[in-house]
Every structure is written in C-alpha cells, then in structure tokens.
C-alpha cells in the first residue's frame, strides 16, 4: 500500500527511515494485530458492561444466559490481555481463550436457535452474536489467523517444548 510521505507531518521516528508504512511483512501483521486487539478491547468492555447490567437488574430471569455473559466478558478481557503480551505463556493463553470464544459463540449460537427458551434473554453469543454485528463470530477466526501467523515470532522461540 503506497503512502503519501510528504503529507504526513507527524514525526514517526521508528518508521521514518523507510517511509511511514514501508514496514516488513511481519511488522505489518503486527500492526493489523493491534487493530484486532482494539476490537477485542471494545468487545470485552461491551460484554462485561452488559453482564454487569443484567446481573444487577434481572439475574433471576435467566441465570444461565447472564452467567454466560459474565464468563464471556471475563474471557474477552483475558484474550485482550493475552494478545497484548508477548511470550509463550500468553501466546498459549491467547489460543485457549480465543478457542473458547469460538466454541462459545458456536454452541450458544446454535442453542439459541434450536431452543430459544434456554436463552430468552440476549447474551453476547446469542444467535451467533447477531446483536453485535456478528463480530463475536468473526473475531475469534481472525484472532486464530493472526496467532497462527505469529507462531514463528522471535519472542515465542527461546523456550523449548
């Protein structure tokens, strides 16, 4: 992607040597990953805020759905942190949390279609996340692609196993 170098008045020391966006492919994927992390952060906030609301106001109405909302909120927060941190441990936590999210949205999404009574009140994962623009369904897949492409990243190498 070409970039209008003269039109960028802001000094960007780290990138100025090769032009504002002439990073290596690995740099670029790291950059896209930052957007992914930002979207995760927003979703974490949304899911957590919703579960806090549901639990304080109407927990008795649908304990299952609301407990799930709370769990999903915590998992989104954990995934956001795991994506931000470097190192093998966090990399593994990122895989676990993102896999859990994909499983969650698929299982809860299917259950909410098959047996709506179980999930009468909406959760983040109901109807495959339709209330959130299907972002909960798409995001784990993008996250997995990003993690997979990062598998040979230097910070994941030193430790054996």
């Amino acid at each position: 992607m070409s970039s209008p170098t003269p039109a960028t008045p802001t000094p960007a020391p780290r990138e100025s040597a090769a032009g504002p966006s002439a990073g290596t492919p690995s740099r670029r994927s790291l950059g896209v990953g930052r957007v992914l992390i930002a979207v995760y952060a927003v979703l974490a906030l949304g899911a957590t805020a919703r579960s806090v609301y549901q639990i304080i106001t109407e927990f008795d109405k649908a304990p299952l759905a609301f407990s799930l909302s709370a769990v999903s909120g915590v998992v989104y927060i954990l995934a956001t942190v795991a994506l931000l941190r470097s190192g093998r441990t966090w990399y593994r936590i990122a895989w676990i949390t993102i896999s859990f999210e994909l499983l969650g949205v698929l299982v809860v999404g299917t259950l909410s279609v098959v047996s709506p009574d179980l999930f009468r009140a909406a959760s983040v994962w109901s109807l495959y996340g339709s209330g959130y623009g299907y972002i909960p369904l798409v995001l784990p897949i993008l996250g997995m692609i990003w993690l997979y492409r990062r598998r040979s990243s230097p910070d994941l190498q030193p430790a054996k196993v």
């Binding site: 970039s3 960007a12 780290r14 504002p20 966006s21 950059g31 930002a38 979207v39």
Partner: peptide, 12 residues
C-alpha cells in the same frame, strides 16, 4: 505512532 493507530481511532 503507527498508521494502525489511526485505524484504531476509526474503529473506536
């Protein structure tokens, strides 16, 4: 200070 931060601003 990368261009992806501008994208993040847009997402926000």
């Amino acid at each position: 200070r990368s261009r992806w931060s501008t994208v993040v601003l847009g997402v926000a």
